[in-house]
Write a protein that binds this DNA or RNA. Sequence first.
DNA 1: ATTATCTATAGATCTATAGATAATGC
DNA 2: ATTATCTATAGATCTATAGATAATGC
Lengths: 263, 263
Amino acid sequence: MSSTASTTGRAGRPRASADSTSSAASALSGREQILDAAAALFSEAGFSGTSTRAIADRVGIRQQSLYYHFAGKDEILAELLSSSVRPSIEFVESIEAQVPGEVTPAGALFALASIDAGTLRRTPHNIGTLYLLPEIQDPRYKAFRDQRVQLRAIYGRLGAACAHPDVIAALGQERIGVVLIQLAEIVIQLRRNDGADTGAGGSTVIGTVTSPVASPVISDDETIAASCLRVLGLTSAQIDVARTEAATIIGTFLHRDLAVTVA
Amino acid sequence: MSSTASTTGRAGRPRASADSTSSAASALSGREQILDAAAALFSEAGFSGTSTRAIADRVGIRQQSLYYHFAGKDEILAELLSSSVRPSIEFVESIEAQVPGEVTPAGALFALASIDAGTLRRTPHNIGTLYLLPEIQDPRYKAFRDQRVQLRAIYGRLGAACAHPDVIAALGQERIGVVLIQLAEIVIQLRRNDGADTGAGGSTVIGTVTSPVASPVISDDETIAASCLRVLGLTSAQIDVARTEAATIIGTFLHRDLAVTVA
DNA sequence: ATTATCTATAGATCTATAGATAATGC
DNA sequence: ATTATCTATAGATCTATAGATAATGC
């Protein structure tokens, strides 16, 4: 060993805590540990129901140490919110551009809904529940709400472009957007009902939500996307076409994304 | 005047407050005023985000006076929750009994969904938002959650009994229940988006949510009910049949209800 | 007598600032 | 020197109990 025995390997005064709790206490930076702990607590007990003390305890630091990383509790929530819509927004921007020509609205909508469902499903600690907190109505979180309004508008446009005429007549583009988002976010409720959320620290726990017997080829995410098209009055045949097209769209996006990451 | 000028007309020491705030400060009992104030605050700021002080201030009494009516803040929430599911449960019990013979599943489901949507729409202060609070996961509110599980199961049974085979295969009865409740509760989101909720004190503010131009015969509630059947794969023609049948079912229920009230 | 409030107050939090301290990094 | 923690602590709140008080009801 170079100097003292098993040091933290990071700068800064060591934590007073025993650093007891098993497995992966590290891997995440201090800041990330705080975000992870806060996400878990906010979704269980709400924003106001979670004290800075509770967050710090979970991380294994003193309450006051939080303020080195964040100016206040509200900044922690703001960061969690903005990082959780980001994937959808990114995907949406890439997809809507190519809608009139290369891609049908139904295919694009199916792709968008299944991406959103998948993101919400894989998110640690069911972060989507934060969207339901009354506190986000505060002007402080306007930027986040604006992003959601934007996303809803895109759902509305895509939906109105492929819905059965009867549905457009009954709902109109705006409410179509609300209905579709509400359906995609059903994942939040499903995870809540399953209780005792897995969502381990940083590791991406994929799938395994409620298919005890052995689900067919169609994933839960695609089932939800299919429900989005169904509520717009599309037939099973039309939905299957959209599903196939969506697979291509998503494949293309993933490649492009990879290219961007590499470059 | 009999004795002193304009007294409160009620027993108990008078409130210290100026009793300023305009209109209908009365009509409601003290207890009801507290419930009304708490409902408004809980849905705006959440349960933990609302102090007993804030509730009392809104009512116009001292913080400590709340404890004469309720043992604690949690009892106020419990009462709000239980009173808000009651109408649905009552309707459901009367309706499901007659389902195999006199009434089709699609008709019953249409009726149930539009009753639920209507109830949520008319509720003061958009009380349905309380269902979204993380705090209700607490064991303390288990009775309420159990009622919702029960309601969801009924949605699931009715839905599975009338859904297109493809939908049953994809979702299964359980998830059908979750999807249908989620759709019915879209009213909560619509009211939230409209912001600045009307929902005056005790008066039942009906309708007027977002039909700026002039909606056709079909109410918003029926539009939502129709979406519930649509997501199950029913055609417009089948939905219209269900709508007609639902009108009869609801009519019958209202009469029966009236009879009960009178008796 | 009963009802519905009031005042006084204890004790437990909760957020946040100020400044000290113990590591790493150069 | 920089980083990430620590200790000490102020000041604001928050829930809840105890007991007094001012009405109505009989």
